[in-house]
Amino acid sequence: MLEKTSPTTAELGQVLRRRWRLGEKLIESWIFLAGVLTIVVLLGIIALLIKEGLPAFWHTPPWEFFFGTKWYPVSEPPTFGIMPFFVATLWVTLVATAISVPIGVACAAYLSEVAPAKVRETVKPIIEILAGIPSVVMGFIGLMLLSPLVQSTFNLNTGLCGLTAGIMLSLMSLPIIISVSEDALRAVPDDFREASYALGATKWETIRHVCIPGALSGITAAIMLGVGRAIGETMTVLMVAGGALAVPVSPTDPMMPMTAAIASGIGNAVRGGLQYQALFAIGLILFILTLAVNLIADRVLERQKRKFAR
């Protein structure tokens, strides 16, 4: 009996192994296709942006497009200068980053290093829910609650300005920054902390000189994700940034960031028309901007890794 069954088991095993191999092949090719698909979609988006956006530079030379301060798409003849939008995007992103990075990293350090497990388990999901609030709701909150407050606090003519938009954006990028930074801090091995305490360092010194430097690559990634969110966010800035066409000289001026400019003009643009091309060109510039942010983040990560590899 034994002699008879053992070959069958071996056969069975072979069949199973073959079937498993087939399954693995299928899954492998599925994953491969999924990977290829994302690349194809990405290349398609780039190709579309270039195809629709580049012709804008035939009628408006690039330097006039970048440094022009007049955007009158529905006038005869139309003029397209995106300097006000570009500066507005910089202001809004700057305000959002200046607020969200210190708060976000500090909150992550608290959650990972100081807070008891119970607090962390309750607070982290709540923070992640904050990330799920739709941007149009954030726009409403900005419009109804924050803009009157900003107006009275800074004694402005109107609360619809870059500062209001930046504060709302900081609230939207906070959850990303906290969540990713906290993961990064928790990934720092406990040996590091123990060694630090053994040398007589206090908790603050350990966080400041051991944990945060150790997790810096992850924190940088978190900040870049947050900045990316702030640059690309549209609905909130459309609603609360004010939408003025002058080049903003201070964050308390009403302004129209690039995303808002695209959103407030694209419905009106005839496919293939001058304004349509100009709006796609803004899209192309936004894309290049976010690409640059990602490349810089990569460079920082690389340098960080080399430093720790020593």
Binding site: T69, K70, S75, L245, A263, S264
Partner: peptide, 11 residues
């Protein structure tokens, strides 16, 4: 004549 730069353009 065009709208001035400080005019708020609301959606």
């Amino acid at each position: 004549l065009e709208y001035g730069g400080d005019v708020l353009m609301l959606p």
